[in-house]
Design a protein around this nucleic acid. Structure first.
Length: 853
RNA sequence: GGGCAGGUAGCUCAGCUGGCUAGAGCGCCACAUUCACACUGUGGAGGUCGGGAGUUCGAGUCUCUUUCUGCCCACCA
């Protein structure tokens, strides 16, 4: 088979992927040391976004590289039911149908959502394929698969038995719009301008009043105390006295608590234990009643005076401020800017509400996780992120894992209908009521926080707890994911992984940053600057996208997406394509058989030289990939292929070719490029060599042997040709003759030099004349007329001046005592060599100049 | 209020343990050519590395300070 004249990725990418998939190349080989990556599961019913277009190629580069290295490699794909995310989309759909969640039972809603997801599922997986992911589809896991739920229940049960999960009546972050609670981490704080209202509460005794300041006057309906600092001289005498709550008339005490700041507001705080986390804690310390005045629907409850009942919090705030003003209790309204919690999805103001929920006592889990990060059992790239986690573990508070949405894993807990405090663990969640020991228990209607189940992903996907066939792949070699979910996900995986398996879930963590638009702005639908990776693939091909997106990007950094880089990637693939076409033409016309090309021996000096360059690239590449320096790795292959293979080796082969060996060189290059541009390299490989052995399964090249002296000969030619091109660039274009008197390298390669430097010819001459070119390994003369030499005079003079400056700098350095004494000897030697080199050049140019004039 | 990251060529970014003349891609300028490739070739211009101070023989790289940008965290009601 022959390669088509033009590089058209759309013509071969899908079929190449199918070839890999059906060949079984994605599955672990069963040989070598295990290497594993678990893919952060993309949302099952969503399209991939540009972040995935970075994540997938990086994980694929690692997977393909280690597979070629002979490791027993698996990359486990997955799909996320994305509990809350999906639920929001589904509920919006439900509402658009004129329905509400309250029209259905939990089972019905679960099934409906399942069907909804099912309709859209598959799309995402096709897109992962389009990106070239060499993941093992036979081991794919969906976050609602039975084995996931079983494992999650096992974990929950262990936490239950160990007393680390508890039913707490505590303040939770509640979104009145979505009617569910959130973990602390899911709340988004936004700075808002508001007021600080100063309200006077009259003392019951009638002897004066106490003024408090609040940003949420509506919560006063639920006040059960006023708190002041115990050492505050202004209020010392009032502690223990009571005040009358304005508008409500309730008598509430004045308590003393250290949590009150002396210099904020008036130094006196109204305490609403049911609606504020700090007030809740103060309430606990002083045994204050908790009165819930804001309901789960975000409206004022029956616990408040009748005129406020049913109002939204915003309405109630206006009313109350108005009423306070009328009652003469409003002392002052101060402008105030503060951070207000919002639902990260709908933007509604989060209400801190008192709820009974399941909490995990994270202290012991966090302690172990922190140690694993601290002692380096888990290694972070970039490293600062590890320190960030350590800090996070220190101040982590108990984790609320209850969610009031039906789309998720049901919490396997049942409550005694006759005793609200009697809860039992039971996995018969398909039943709303169960009988145990003659008592009736009712199911908890809540589901788990998605992060609770996905936090177990590494040992779930590898079936580690049940010794499944992938269990040797736990711990994973690396966890590659976005920095934005460092705390939400990575932190939890480490805690739960250590807790359940006594092993870290992964050894390395590579975190990629957010991908911004071309101008460094965050991509968002509303701004209309979202890049769709599938459109980029249609336009330039998958390989181009992979290379373009990895280029110019470093770990953890939010960086712009650049279409120009994708173009560069596409051009690179095109280059490779044409290199292959050229080599094939040469090899075919020389009747080189496909067999044994991998054993072809280098003959020409160019052969040895290209081996030396590819060997360097091979070593650099391994180094970069091992250290997760993907952009540098791409740069290495890019330049090895373009600047060295195409620009020098191929050009040299036009003078003297070794066709069998050229095929070998192509084979090496294809292997080195394959992890980055798998489609085009595999296409070339199978087109030339047939589909019996795929490139994806080829071993990584082992050390390349070559003759150093022959490679150096070619290097000398490269040096000379560069100099000649440089000089010719300053001259009117016409073909010149190069002459030499004594130079082995030049003598042996007359034609090669002439061709590469586009000279008329290269000749031996006992009385050479013209412009003298003195290089470390050759002395030659470019035959120029006196006029031409004269026109080059200015350039020579400029060169001379530049050299003189450099010599001055070098001499200064060498005359510096400190430098000679303290700098490493190697460096001093180098400087000396450099100086004598430049001095020699200066002499030659000086002579040249005097000859001209 | 605290923390982190970043400010290097027109644009997007590299620069790992301080080492000599700071790199890449794209863009720009000039020339070339249709011989694997115009998704091409060759040459070139372009940077006082945000500002200031310090440590050092030597600083884009380390320290301090200042300024701008972005992100994260935090119960000042």
């Amino acid at each position: 088979m022959k390669l088509s004249k033009t590089y058209e990725p759309a013509k071969f990418e899908p079929s190449i992927y199918a070839l890999w998939e059906t060949s079984g190349a994605f599955m672990p080989s069963g040989k070598g040391d295990p290497y594993s990556i678990v893919m952060p599961p993309p949302n099952a019913n969503g399209n991939l976004h540009v972040g995935h277009a970075y994540m997938i190629p990086i994980e694929d580069v690692l997977t393909r590289y280690y597979r070629m290295q002979g490791r027993d490699t698996v990359w486990i794909p997955g799909a996320d039911h994305a509990g809350f995310e999906t639920w929001v989309v589904f509920e919006r759909y439900l509402n658009s149908q004129g329905k509400s969640r309250f029209d259905y039972s939990r089972e019905e809603l679960y099934q409906m959502t399942w069907d909804f997801v099912e309709q859209n599922r598959g799309n995402m997986e096709l897109q992962i394929r389009a990106l070239g992911a060499s993941c093992d589809w036979s081991s794919t896991v969906f976050t609602l698969d039975k084995k996931v739920i079983d494992t999650v229940y096992q974990t929950f049960h262990k936490l239950w038995d160990d007393g680390l999960v508890y039913r707490g009546n505590r303040i939770v972050n509640y979104c009145p719009h979505h009617q569910t609670s959130f973990a602390d981490i899911e709340v988004e704080y936004r700075e808002e301008k508001s007021n600080l209202w100063h309200i006077a509460y009259p003392l019951t005794s009638g002897a004066g009043e106490i003024e408090v300041a609040t940003t949420r006057p509506e919560t006063m309906l639920g006040d059960t105390a006023i708190a002041v600092h115990p050492d505050d001289p202004r209020y010392k005498d009032l502690i223990g006295k009571t005040v009358i709550l304005p508008l409500v008339g309730r008598e509430i005490p004045i308590v003393a608590d250290e949590a009150v700041e002396l210099d904020f507001g008036t130094g006196a705080v109204k305490i609403t234990p049911a609606h504020d986390p700090v007030d809740f804690e103060i309430g606990q310390r002083h045994n204050l009643p908790q009165i819930q005045v804001i309901g789960f629907d975000g409206k004022i409850t029956d616990a408040a005076p009748v005129e406020y009942q049913g109002l939204t919090t915003e309405e109630a705030r206006l009313e109350i401020v108005e009423h306070l003003k009328l009652a003469g209790a409003l002392r002052q309204v101060e402008e105030f800017t503060h951070q207000v919690p919002h639902c990260y999805k709908c933007g509604a103001v989060i209400q801190p509400l008192l709820m009974k929920q399941w909490f995990i006592n994270v202290k012991p889990l966090a302690k172990r996780a922190k140690e694993a990060v601290e002692d380096g059992r888990i290694h972070f790239v970039p490293a600062q992120k590890g320190y960030e986690l350590i800090h996070y573990y220190d101040e982590l508070r108990d984790w609320n894992i209850s969610r009031q949405i039906p789309w998720g894993i049901p919490i396997p807990a049942f409550q005694n209908v006759d005793d609200p405090d009697d809860w039992i663990f039971d996995t018969r969640v398909e039943q709303t009521e169960i009988e145990v020991n003659g008592k009736t228990y009712r199911r908890d209607e809540d589901t788990f926080d998605t992060w609770f189940s996905s936090g177990q992903w590494p040992f779930v996907t590898t079936d580690y707890l049940s010794d499944g066939k992938l269990c040797k792949f736990y711990p994973n070699s690396v966890m590659e994911t976005g920095v934005d979910i460092l705390r939400a996900w990575v932190a939890r995986m480490i805690m739960l992984g250590l807790y359940m398996t006594n092993k870290v879930p992964f050894r390395d963590v590579f975190l990629h940053g957010l991908i911004l638009d071309e101008h460094g702005q965050k991509m968002s639908k509303s701004k209309g600057n979202v890049v769709n990776p599938m459109e980029i693939i249609d336009k330039y091909g998958s390989d181009a996208l992979r290379i373009g997106i990895i280029m110019n990007r470093s770990a953890g950094q939010a960086q712009a997406f650049s279409e120009a880089s994708v173009v560069a990637g596409r051009n690179f693939c095109n280059k490779l394509w044409n290199i292959a076409r050229y080599i094939e033409d040469k090899a075919d016309s020389a009747n080189v058989a496909n067999e044994d090309v991998d054993d072809a021996e280098p003959e020409t000096i160019a052969d040895h030289w290209i081996l030396s360059r590819l060997e360097q690239a091979r070593v650099d590449l391994s180094n970069h990939i091992t250290n997760y320096r993907f952009a540098e790795a791409v740069e290495t292959v890019y330049h090895a292929v373009w600047d060295e293979l195409a620009d020098w080796y191929i050009e040299a082969s036009k003078v003297e070719a070794n066709p069998a060996f050229m095929r070998r060189v192509l084979g090496i290059a294809l292997r080195l490029v394959h992890p980055f541009a798998p489609f085009v390299t595999e296409t070339i490989w199978t087109t030339i060599r047939g589909q019996e052995s795929l490139l994806i399964s080829q071993p990584w090249p082992s050390e390349l042997k070559f003759s150093k002296t022959k490679a150096a000969d070619f290097e000398a030619i490269v040096e000379l040709v560069n100099e000649l091109r440089n000089i010719q660039g300053q001259l009117p274009s016409r073909k010149y003759r190069l002459v030499y008197d004594e130079s082995r390298v030049v003598e042996e390669n007359e034609e090669l030099i002439a061709s590469l430097a586009r000279l008329k010819d290269v000749k031996h001459d006992h009385t050479p004349h013209g412009l003298r070119i003195v290089l470390p390994r050759s002395t030659t003369w470019l035959e120029l007329s006196d006029e031409e030499i004269l026109s080059y005079k200015d350039d020579l003079q400029a060169k001379l001046d530049k050299l003189k400056n450099e010599i001055y700098a070098l001499e200064k350095r060498l005359s510096n005592k400190g430098y000679i004494e303290k700098a490493p000897e190697r460096l001093v030697e180098e400087t000396k060599r450099n100086l004598s080199d430049k001095k020699r050049q200066t002499t030659h140019i000086g002579e040249q100049l005097s000859e001209i004039s």
